[in-house]
Design a binder for these strands. Structure first.
Lengths: 219, 219
DNA sequence: GCCAAAATACCGAAATGATGGTAGGGCGGT
DNA sequence: ACCGCCCTACCATCATTTCGGTATTTTGGC
């Protein structure tokens, strides 16, 4: 079993940081490969087009750093991170995503990601991030830390409350939600009051907005 | 002044399709450049990081095909297309975007784009699209045509209705909207009724959902 | 088996939203 | 000058949502 203190054989051989990249957008994959391939101190050892493939290729190659998109088919980034860290708890994973909703960041960090990069990051930002993570450091932009700090103090929603919120965000009325969940309209109202209190809003429309911003539901 | 019937000097010289690419994500830009650069029949002549730069570089290079992201700083894709086509009505522009909301597609096509590609398009799809557009053909995926057909039969919102809808989508109440727009709450209700009728919905929450799906507002 | 949390449910009052009809002022086009 | 459209505005009425407080049952963990 590999661990963080094992000298990585391939690094020793090539002297390069071995990187796995995963993204369902072929353009992004090409771009990452091109940028990384040009660096003298790193190389791409595997490219995956979805989450499942990313886990398989990680198992085969055991790269120094893995760069994963959060939204991918078959298995999303968080799922892939969990699978990978089941094999190696010290695996170094960078999450690369277009969106920065609170919930996605939180889930990714809970799953054990070392760094969280937005896709509009600059070239040097991204390459430096790979180098830092390879050295065992973490790399979370200050703007994201702020978002986290703001969100962490809020209570989390229960499963049922999330069900209600999801239907709410689809534009359903209380009656429609009750029919959909096989509960009474009164119960829906009770759940809604809890949701409003937890999200610190006063109306359903506000709730939709906040839920969307926090990544609790996607409209 | 160039026009569609002028023989393009650079093509005659190099025999390659000269492509301009524009995207604010450096990764995507790199990816496009790598893919296009590998093709024997095309080459990247200019790379822009935002809309204004795209227009400037188009003016300088007059490429055969321009690949533009829709969402860019300083000037969005549609604005860039309009500027470019002011110089050359026959300019061949491909729109490349992550999202496929009805309104964005419609605006892009109205502005005179020849092709509309989603960023998760496959490699060959993208390269073939460039070749087809260079030959003067268009290239709009069937799935997008369907979306358009579905949306075209609906009435369009007036400017004031869009103002109301925007605030609505921010979770504002009728009273808050009225204060924000310096109109009475009654007027807000009148606008809302028009909005509901035009979007074919029955409540404000449904309106938010539909407006977001059609790209009328972004939450 | 017990405790805490979650899910379910009801009542009633107050606020907000939805829907009908109606209408005057402004503005651009024919 | 007239027509159509947009923006504005009001009244009345009904439906829905929001906000108190309260209570039972179910579920999961210790």
């Amino acid at each position: 079993m590999r661990n963080a203190f094992t000298t990585k054989p391939d690094v020793a051989q090539t002297g390069k940081i071995r990187v796995l990249i995963a993204d369902d957008h072929v353009t992004v994959l090409e771009g990452l490969a091109a940028m990384i391939g040009r660096q003298p101190d790193m190389m791409v050892v595997a490219e995956a087009a979805d989450g499942r493939e990313a886990v398989e290729l990680w198992t085969q190659h055991h790269p120094d750093v893995a760069l994963l998109d959060l939204r991918m088919p078959t298995l999303d980034g968080v799922g892939a991170i969990e699978q990978i860290r089941k094999q190696d708890g010290a695996a170094r994973v960078i999450v690369l995503t277009t969106y920065d909703t609170d919930n996605e960041i939180l889930r990714a960090i809970k799953a054990g990601t070392k760094a969280y990069l937005l896709k509009d990051a600059h070239r040097e930002e991204l390459l430096d991030c790979i180098r830092r993570v390879n050295r065992g450091e973490t790399c979370i932009p200050a703007s994201l830390v702020e978002k986290l700090a703001a969100g962490l103090c809020s209570e989390s929603l229960t499963g049922r409350e999330l069900n209600v919120l999801e239907l709410l965000a689809r534009g359903k009325s209380n009656k429609e939600i009750s029919v959909n969940l096989y509960i009474s309209e009164t119960t829906v109202k009770t759940h809604l009051r809890s949701i409003f209190r937890k999200l610190n809003v006063l109306s359903r429309t506000e709730a939709i907005m906040v839920a969307n911003r926090r990544g609790l539901v996607q409209i």
